[in-house]
């Protein structure tokens, strides 16, 4: 036993310095020098102000914006620290709903959301991503189908023809990466920034 003490302490200490300090700091140094945009979170600035990250979804509730997916993130209840309250797209505390497929809570939530969306868009069905929460609660994307489902509402809210909104979507639908990886999608923040530019008011 005793003969193992020295190598154990020496190697734990030196490997901690090497892998726990030198390695992350070196990567940080190189990343900051060569790829500052990505290394700092792909932040999106408008007029010099940070409006979010291109990679992180944010909450949109007004009718004039494209809405992201439902989000299950939460935040500490300001009134009672032991409890949490719903806080969609809380980018300081990522989380999914963790509801099982036969969860009554899930079914009830989807039922309410789906009926509302169907009524709003006048559609028989809704895309799955429109009524399901993402794994991180911070999904920046929606499916092209869900984006299109919202055209009617946004056009009405913004008093533009649906073609205008459709065109925005069409220009921003990202196909599968390299043609076959992942799924087609649209970045909601990107869409909404375009909407904002469309109508500066």
């Amino acid at each position: 036993m005793i003969e193992h003490l020295r190598p154990a302490l020496v190697l734990l200490g030196s490997l901690t310095v090497l892998t726990g300090v030198a390695y992350p700091l070196a990567i940080t140094g190189v990343a900051q020098a060569l790829l500052p945009g990505a290394a700092n979170g792909s932040l999106v600035e408008v007029d010099g102000k940070v409006v979010g990250s291109a990679l992180i979804g944010q909450s949109f509730t007004a009718a004039k914006w494209f809405h992201g997916r439902p989000s299950a993130t939460s935040a500490p209840d300001p009134n009672d620290a032991t409890k949490t309250i719903d806080a969609p797209y809380n980018a300081a505390n990522s989380s999914g709903s963790n509801l099982g497929p036969l969860s009554a809570k899930l079914i009830d939530r989807v039922k309410a959301d789906a009926e509302m969306l169907k009524a709003e868009a006048g559609a028989a069905t809704v895309p799955a991503d429109a009524v399901t929460t993402s794994a991180s609660g911070l999904d920046p994307h929606v499916s092209p189908a869900y984006a299109r489902l919202q055209v009617k509402r946004i056009a009405a809210a913004r008093h533009v023809t649906p073609d205008v909104v459709e065109a925005l979507i069409a220009a921003r639908v990202a196909g599968r990466d390299l043609g076959f990886l992942g799924e087609p999608r649209v970045n909601v923040l990107d869409l909404n920034l375009a909407l904002a530019r469309l109508d500066p008011s």
């Binding site: 999914g96 709903s97 963790n98 509801l99 497929p101 899930l106 079914i107 989807v110 039922k111 789906a114 009926e115 169907k118 028989a124 069905t125 809704v126 895309p127 799955a128 991503d129 009524v131 399901t132 929460t133 993402s134 794994a135 499916s143 189908a145 799924e183």
Partner: peptide
Amino acid sequence: LGVDPSLGNLEG
């Protein structure tokens, strides 16, 4: 409930 299954189970 009228959810299009073509994208699969997207909850989570």
